[in-house]
Nucleic acid binder design. Structure first.
Length: 296
DNA sequence: CGTTCAACCTGGGCGC
DNA sequence: TGCGCCCAGGTTGAAC
């Protein structure tokens, strides 16, 4: 679920907790067996107790919460990766089951508790020192952020590559924060066939992809992300995102393209669904066949 | 270097 | 009702 817009929305939703002190950290037994938590829950709970929350940052699809010096070590970062179904919440969780972490905060915090809920349990919670933080969130792990990606940066990272451009956009070292939904939406707005080899992209193509990425991601952040179908995704205070109303291709196989009316197709690339319009995203380099009025 | 596959999990939807 | 199968917003590591 969470890609850049959803994770940024979570970050904003909990940013006011900066400065709050942790009265108690809980990692419900059983609920965290599957989840990757490091160090082990008992130790993590004791390390976090009594510490104060610092800056709340987003790095790609991860949220990093600064932790002022822990009991027996210096400052650290609590890095949370929601992966498919993780949610950072100040509101009540969707179910009592699958609640993975609760940080009880001392008054006067803006909210009494910060929770991490994760149905599938693929998410991760890690307390990292400076070196671990660098490894997880530094430039070796993550490329430039999607909200500010440029054609030049893209050219440097995928020039000459034979990979399909859609697969490359999912690579967090190329650009950080783009996932399966937004890769599809970005390429449709850029008019680029998702199967195009990166090395066949011209400067103008890269320019359109970078511009579409910045625009789509920024608009999705404004609309607080995408809540699809049975939508597990919610903001930290339990509201749905609204960008799904502006999806042009994702999840719309067989439906009419909002640009040309043709059918949206679904293919599989790198074991994941790709949705696109063969007319608006022609296989050969060329101009867009259909001009669209407004972009999300 | 790149692709493919399995694995990590739960749960909803579908066909039978 | 139930069972088996497929699907899902992500990432990683092994095998080829």
């Amino acid at each position: 679920m969470p890609e850049l817009p959803e994770v940024e929305t979570m970050r904003r939703g909990i940013a006011a907790l900066s400065g709050a002190r942790i009265a108690e950290a809980r990692f419900p037994a059983g609920a965290c067996r599957a989840l990757a938590i490091a160090p082990r829950p008992e130790r993590l709970a004791s390390l976090l107790r009594g510490t104060r929350l610092g800056a709340v940052e987003r790095h790609g699809k991860r949220v990093a919460i600064g932790i002022e010096s822990t009991a027996d070590a210096g400052p650290a970062w609590l890095v949370i990766e929601p992966r498919m179904t993780g949610l950072l919440l100040v509101a009540d969780p969707p179910t009592a089951k699958h609640l993975r972490m609760e940080l009880l905060l001392e008054p006067p915090a803006p909210h009494p508790v910060l929770r991490f809920w994760d149905q599938r349990g693929l998410g991760t919670i890690r307390l990292l020192d400076a070196a671990g933080f660098e490894r997880a969130c530094g430039p070796r792990a993550l490329g430039p952020d999607g909200l500010s990606i440029t054609a030049e940066a893209l050219a440097g990272r995928l020039g000459g590559s034979r990979r399909a451009v859609k697969v490359a956009l999912l690579d967090q070292r190329v650009v950080a924060g783009i996932g399966n939904i937004y890769a599809a939406e970005i390429l449709h707005r850029a008019g680029i066939d998702p199967r195009r080899e990166c090395r066949r992209l011209g400067d103008d193509d890269l320019e359109r992809i970078a511009a579409a990425a910045r625009r789509v991601l920024a608009r999705a952040v404004e609309l607080e992300g995408s809540s699809i179908g049975d939508e597990l995704y919610r903001t930290a205070d339990n509201r749905k995102g609204r960008f799904q109303k502006l999806h042009r291709v994702y999840g719309r196989e067989g439906e009419a393209c909002r640009g040309c009316g043709g059918p949206i197709e679904r293919i599989v690339q790198a074991q994941r669904s790709t949705f696109f319009c063969a007319t608006c995203q022609p296989p050969r380099p060329g101009r867009r066949l259909v001009r669209r009025r407004r972009t999300a």
